[in-house]
């Protein structure tokens, strides 16, 4: 029975450079949006990996390119946006080079999406069951109705929804239920990677928790890798195995979740984590001064120079590359690169 896909749940191996359980490798991805005043560099030279059975958090403020990165991985960048360069290796296939036809076959089968606005992501005129059924049938061909229904009910139960949801229309569900329908749909074909684009952003904290737990269960029981996009740092701390921080279309830091929260290296990550609101104390809000530069004309040198408290002359001319500072902890900032260099350990790549 292929209704319950069961991967062996793999525990993340210690991150030491190249690993052999890479599911997705994004290399030098560039996505630009055309505007009359020139191209907006929404995603500029972003590279990262996703390992089997892990949740990779992708954080950053609004407009930093998180969602664009995710959409590019799905090859769903909407015009006027376009992928300008780079590779997206999924299970050995470069998605950037695929034809529409090959892409269509691969979508959802290997990579699926839990969309940002689950509220409006379900077709309002089709019943929930039919919307899950169409994706299964379009990819696997026609199937006996009864077995198919069993399978869909099983999916719904897996995300904690009752059977009656099968026959309901989206507007008859609550926000949390719709989001879980989207999760059930995302795992229907047992993909190797799910992109969850702010899956909890429109939900209240209690429902957020339920959805978060559902995501964790999906990861643990099915061994599916997840890219979790969001700006809720608390949620990231709870769910993610590793976290990647984006700023103005660039990846500035990527590290396992504990070191990232305990000892954030990049000044932007530090500000981001300091600015997490606390219910215990009122902190002055950080990150208020300075604006992000115009994304059409990125400055030479470090992209964070205008807002960085530690900016030096060198930051204004040379751009720091993402480099390993500790094993598995990469950061794009000269503060650490020099320390690493002077410490004698040559930075890997």
């Amino acid at each position: 029975m292929n209704a319950t896909p069961t991967f062996p749940a793999s525990s993340p191996a210690p991150p030491n450079g190249q690993r052999d359980d890479v599911v997705l490798r994004v290399e030098h991805l560039k996505v630009y949006y055309a505007t009359p005043q020139g191209d907006v560099h929404a995603v500029d030279d972003v590279s990262f990996e996703v390992y089997r059975g892990e949740i990779l958090g992708l954080v950053g403020e609004s407009g930093c390119g998180k969602t664009t990165t995710a959409m590019a991985i799905l090859r769903l960048v909407q015009p006027p946006g376009r992928i300008v360069g780079g590779h997206i290796w999924l299970d050995g296939i470069d998605l950037v080079r695929l034809s529409e036809r090959e892409l269509r076959r691969l979508r959802w089968d290997k990579i699926s999406l839990i969309p940002q606005g689950a509220m409006n992501s379900l077709n309002p005129v089709l019943r929930v069951g039919e919307q899950i059924r169409d994706v299964i049938e379009d990819h696997e061909g026609r199937q006996p109705r009864k077995a198919l229904k069993e399978r869909i009910l099983h999916l719904l139960h897996l995300v904690g929804l009752p059977s009656r949801v099968y026959n309901l229309y989206p507007h008859e569900l609550s926000g949390g239920m719709k989001q879980r329908v989207c999760i059930a749909m995302a795992i229907a074909l047992n993909p190797i990677l799910i992109i969850a684009d702010e899956p909890t952003s429109a939900l209240d904290v209690v429902v957020q928790r339920v959805v978060a737990e559902t995501l964790l269960r999906v990861k643990e029981e099915l061994g599916i890798s997840i890219i979790l996009i969001g700006h809720d740092m608390g949620l990231m701390a709870q769910l993610a195995d590793r976290v990647a921080v984006m700023y103005a279309g660039h990846l500035v830091e990527i590290a396992p979740v504990r070191p990232l929260f305990k000892t954030p290296l990049h000044p932007y990550t530090q500000l981001l984590i300091e600015s997490i609101p606390s219910i215990k104390e009122r902190k002055p809000l950080k990150l208020t001064e300075g604006l992000t530069h115009d994304l059409r004309n990125p400055p030479p040198g470090c992209i964070f120079q205008f807002r960085c408290p530690h900016v030096t002359e060198g930051c204004r001319t040379r751009r720091p590359m993402l480099q390993d500072v500790h094993p598995g902890h990469r950061v794009a900032c000269f503060l650490y690169h020099e320390a690493v260099a002077s410490g004698g350990t040559s930075p890997q790549r």
């Binding site: 769903l76 909407q78 959802w108 606005g117 992501s121 309002p124 089709l126 994706v135 990819h139 989207c182």
Partner: peptide, 20 residues
């Protein structure tokens, strides 16, 4: 609409997306 983008992401048959 979001459901059209999701339909695309689902890799559905283009004619199904068009009609349904």
């Amino acid at each position: 609409e979001d459901y059209m983008i999701l339909a695309e992401a689902k890799g559905l048959n283009p004619f199904r997306v068009f009609w349904k």
